[in-house]
Computed example of a mutant assay.
Amino acid sequence: MRILLVEDDEALALGLTRNLERQGWQVDRLADGRQAMAKGLVEQYDVCVLDLGLPGADGMTVLREWRSQGAAQPVLVLTARDTSHDRVAGLDAGADDYLVKPFDPPELAARLRALKRRSEGRTSETLRLGRLRMDLAHRELFLDDEPFYLSPREFALTEMLMQRAGRVLNKEAIVAKLSSWESDFSENSVEVYVHRLRKRLAPCGLAIRTVRGFGYVMELDAPAAQSQPA
């Protein structure tokens, strides 16, 4: 999951970034409202965490501009303003959720997962394909009932492919989701990671098929699946 975190409290932003990155998410961090306004309109994010008290432009102005320009990414407003009037104003401006400071980081993470789940039309925190099961809440992967370990980026790519199982996932979407400002991720990187995953997932009865000029499709590899024990 790629997240835009807009928070001008440096200590809080750094702590949140580290917490979210430990869960394998890509986090881009900004502290200025005007910069956030522009980035939210040109970059692709799974969810945005937006403080209201920002320099440059306040969070409410940023949110209204995003929505007026058609930016549809889920937005969680993060603020110390805790009155009913403030919450109603934030939700009416286009926020999808509202979390008041101080808060517990695990609650923030759970809310972000829920926003992403709703945006994808899912009701479960579990993805399944063949013998592979992915627990999105705990960032764990299982082959049958045994843990199956992948690197954070391999896990993120597998998640994207499982979410679109049987449908094409294009390279541009992979680059957009797995890149961050501090860590570039090119189309050549995609090819390297897909090559790795093909080898890792072959024993699971899964195949990653290249659709030339478009991208990749994850699907059941029937012969391999039949050769595995039930």
Rank of each mutant, 00 (worst) to 15 (best):
L52Y: 02
A224V: 07
E191V: 01
A80S: 10
L91M: 12
F103K: 03
R64G: 00
R117Y: 07
G166P: 02
P147W: 03
G56K: 03
A156Q: 10
P105Q: 10
A156C: 09
V62D: 11
A57P: 03
E182T: 09
M218T: 05
A176W: 06
R87D: 01
T17Q: 14
D9H: 14
A137N: 09
D104K: 15
R128N: 08
A176V: 03
A11F: 14
A71I: 12
S84K: 13
T123I: 14
G40V: 05
D9Q: 14
K101N: 09
L16V: 11
R128S: 13
Y149D: 08
D86E: 13
N170S: 02
L141G: 02
F185T: 10
D221W: 05
H138Q: 12
P74W: 04
G56D: 04
Y193M: 13
R117K: 14
K199S: 07
T158H: 09
G70H: 08
G24L: 08
L129A: 10
R196H: 14
D86H: 03
A222D: 12
S183C: 15
L16M: 15
P102E: 07
W25H: 14
W25C: 13
P147R: 09
L178T: 04
V175G: 10
E65V: 04
A165I: 11
V47D: 06
P74V: 07
R67M: 07
D104S: 15
R212T: 10
R81D: 02
L16T: 06
H138D: 11
F103R: 02
L12D: 14
G56V: 00
S179D: 12
S119G: 12
R113L: 10
L161K: 03
E43T: 05
L197E: 05
K171R: 11
L157D: 05
Q73W: 08
A80T: 05
D86K: 02
V190G: 12
A176H: 09
R34G: 13
Y193F: 15
S183F: 11
S124T: 15
V211A: 05
L41I: 07
A95N: 02
P203K: 04
F142C: 03
R111K: 13
P106A: 13
A13V: 04
M134R: 05
T210Y: 10
L41M: 12
R81Y: 02
W181D: 15
L220I: 14
S151Y: 05
C204F: 01
I174G: 07
A72T: 13
A225M: 01
R29E: 15
D58Q: 04
L30M: 00
Q44P: 02
E191R: 12
E219D: 14
A114E: 02
A71D: 11
A110V: 11
A11R: 15
R29W: 15
T17K: 15
H138A: 09
P152D: 10
A80R: 00
Q163I: 09
V217C: 10
K199Q: 13
L201Y: 01
C204P: 06
A165C: 06
G59F: 03
A176Y: 08
T126E: 12
P229A: 09
